[in-house]
């Protein structure tokens, strides 16, 4: 039970900091709204219907906006040298990773909800008739994304290149999430039956499990001094 308490404590601490400073949510939130505005002028709605390309744009916004915030996961710890203190406490490092990932997941979920609201208001999108399946698809993809980007943000924050390293590290690994996420959401948006997306949901689940498990396993090698 101690293990879960550690996860909870870490996640709670991160969310509390986020609630008080609102740094990352503010950055990501304004990013997604502005992307919506730019997106409006980057397509000619007389030729292309937003509904048709919306899934792709939504996923790209999640990835770019998400990475913006995820890159700062360990910033606070690294700046004050607080991380060496955390490392000296006798907590299992994988629990620390899972706590960080959980906090990131909550933050990114909020941002994703905002993305969906913004895009539906701006472009009058219809999200299909299976909200729960859509929710599952997005949530599984977010777990995978957060799992990988939390691990790699712990890495990039300790390099001389900093956050600019993050896209190079994470993007090649995100292909499964993009392909299955976009395919499932476009089918759902188009009102196709649920049976067409079960394969994608399964693959997204595998991706989520794989990235969180690999992250928990390898996190200690990234942070150890």
């Amino acid at each position: 039970m101690d293990y879960f308490r550690v996860i909870w404590t870490v996640a709670r601490k991160d969310l509390l900091i986020e609630m008080r400073t609102r740094e990352r949510v503010a950055a990501m939130g304004s990013f997604v709204v502005l992307v919506g505005v730019l997106f409006n002028y980057s397509i000619d709605t007389a030729i292309v219907r937003p509904q048709e390309i919306a899934p792709g744009i939504i996923w790209m916004t999640i990835i770019f906006g998400g990475l913006l915030g995820m890159g700062r996961t360990f910033h606070l710890e690294e700046e004050d040298g607080a991380f060496s203190g955390v490392l000296q406490t006798p907590i299992p490092l994988d629990a620390l990773y899972l706590g960080k990932t959980a906090a990131n997941l909550v933050i990114l979920s909020l941002v994703t909800v905002l993305i969906f609201i913004v895009f539906s208001v701006f472009f009058g999108l219809s999200f299909g008739s299976h909200p729960f399946v859509l929710l599952t698809v997005v949530f599984l993809a977010l777990i995978g994304f957060v799992g990988l980007s939390t691990l790699f943000s712990a890495m990039s924050v300790r390099t001389t290149m900093g956050e600019s390293l993050l896209p190079v590290l994470v993007f090649p690994l995100l292909i499964p999430m993009v392909i299955f996420g976009v395919s499932a959401t476009s089918r759902l948006f188009a009102g196709r039956p649920v049976s067409e997306v079960t394969g994608s949901v399964r693959m997204l689940g595998a991706f989520a499990i794989l990235s969180v498990a690999a992250g928990a396993l390898l996190f200690r090698y990234v942070v150890e001094e």
């Binding site: 990988l148 691990l151 890495m155 300790r158 390099t159 590290l169 090649p172 690994l173 292909i175 499964p176 392909i179 299955f180 395919s183 693959m203 595998a206 991706f207 794989l210 990235s211 690999a214 390898l218 090698y221 990234v222 150890e224």
Partner: peptide, 27 residues
Amino acid sequence: EQGKRFAAVVGIIGVLDIPLIHISVTW
């Protein structure tokens, strides 16, 4: 030393993700 560990982590994650990438792109 840290660079070596980071590189090793990238190598391991890469080999875990490559089958998944393969499945998704051959889709």
